[in-house]
Design a binder for these strands. Structure first.
Lengths: 141, 141
DNA sequence: CAGTATCCTTAATGATACTG
DNA sequence: CAGTATCATTAAGGATACTG
């Protein structure tokens, strides 16, 4: 068998140009991911996309999130201007969280992520099964 | 001053419905993010969106990535079926990485991320500066 | 209710040395 | 060149207790 080149020639199925100028210096991509790539942010955003929510409501709506992580998550989202926080001086205290206009614009992106995921989820799962079967005990996972 | 409700009524600037059925059980969103939310995957994908690349080429194109992380990253992307890996039995060895059709479809998403980032980057930076100024030594960041 | 404050575990990443 | 193997370092997240 020949060992040189094999010319796979897999058609570059129409992909958009994602480069960032003549040379890419990271686009702003990492910035978005640093913001929503964590474990809980998008889940909180998805819940707030349904409407205004209070702290405990959010915690109940996002199964598994701890009080601590919910606090950290909403604080960071507030800091970035993606959600607003309104405190009512009642007793017991009540705090409402709501998406800002910027936060709402993010939901379009989140929707795109969800759609892509739905469309490729099974194909990816299949690829993983095949790869894992072909590379037993590789440590990769 | 009244302490009850204040009716902020911030217009819910047209956001898409991101819920996942009557109740949301995480959509597939977390799955995508678990895949590309790490530090290097999207950067590798962006580079491969330009064309076929060899290992060293990729490492040079993605400043800061260690040999170890590049290996882990391309292995995981290959496992998920987002990139293909072709080994040429030459000496010295040569390995080419290329986006698969699925990987190419991801570039659309990455483009959307980059666009959103470009559009909101400055607003977010401003929000952070304001928040940080208003919450000195909060620990949040 | 809506948080803070601590302590602890684990996952992710990095640095370095070595190999087919 | 294209990795692998180890060790060290951080950062992210979780558990629990306490408070205005």
């Amino acid at each position: 068998m020949s060992v040189g080149h094999t010319e796979v020639t897999t058609g570059p199925t129409t992909g958009p140009v994602v480069s960032c100028g003549g040379e890419h210096e990271d686009c702003g991509i990492r910035e978005v991911l640093d913001r929503i790539g964590d474990k809980w942010s998008v889940l909180v955003i998805v819940e707030l996309a349904q409407g205004v929510r209070r702290f405990r409501q959010l915690q109940r709506a996002v199964p598994g999130i701890s009080q601590r992580m919910l606090t950290l998550t909403v604080r960071r989202l507030e800091r970035d201007g993606l959600i607003s926080r309104t405190v009512y001086a009642t007793v017991p205290p009540q705090v409402e969280y709501e998406l800002t206009a910027t936060g709402h614009s993010l939901t379009h992106l989140v929707k795109a992520l969800a759609d892509w995921s739905a469309e490729h989820r099974e194909g990816i799962a299949a690829s993983r099964r095949a790869w894992d079967a072909a590379h037993p005990g590789s440590g990769i996972r």
